[in-house]
Amino acid sequence: MESMMALVVGGLYAAAIYMMLRRSIVKLVIGLVLLGNAANLLIFTSGGLTRGAPPLVPDGAAMPAGAVADPLAQALILTAIVIGFGVLAFAVVLIHRAYEVVGADDMDRMKDTDT
């Protein structure tokens, strides 16, 4: 299963980077979202894939009975997803504002500092 996940992660990375290398700023944003997903999956998979054993402690027990999925990787990703959304929201509003001022979404036309 890890091999297939590696393929998915690699594909997401490739798509993200390709989009980030475009001149259109909208495509850059799409690339950013894909990159976030790719990185989260990378961390998730390297923490180990476990089926049907969420990191929960049953009622009355001090710790889970058997092996559970790595909780640390999950905690990291949870933080990353939320922060990624914050950054994205800011970026999208910024781009919209920049478009209003510059009148183009071509990044080659956003090089001047004074408009």
Binding site: E2, S3, G10, G11, A14, I17, S46, L72
Partner: peptide, 28 residues
């Protein structure tokens, strides 16, 4: 496209490598 595919492939390799070396660490 070729640049992004190359880097994507590298990331796959990295992940396979990381999984192969994985041990649930003491912190977890």
């Amino acid at each position: 496209a070729s640049i992004s595919l190359t880097i994507g492939g590298l990331m796959s390799w990295l992940l396979l490598d990381a999984v192969a070396a994985h041990h649930q660490g003491s912190i977890s």
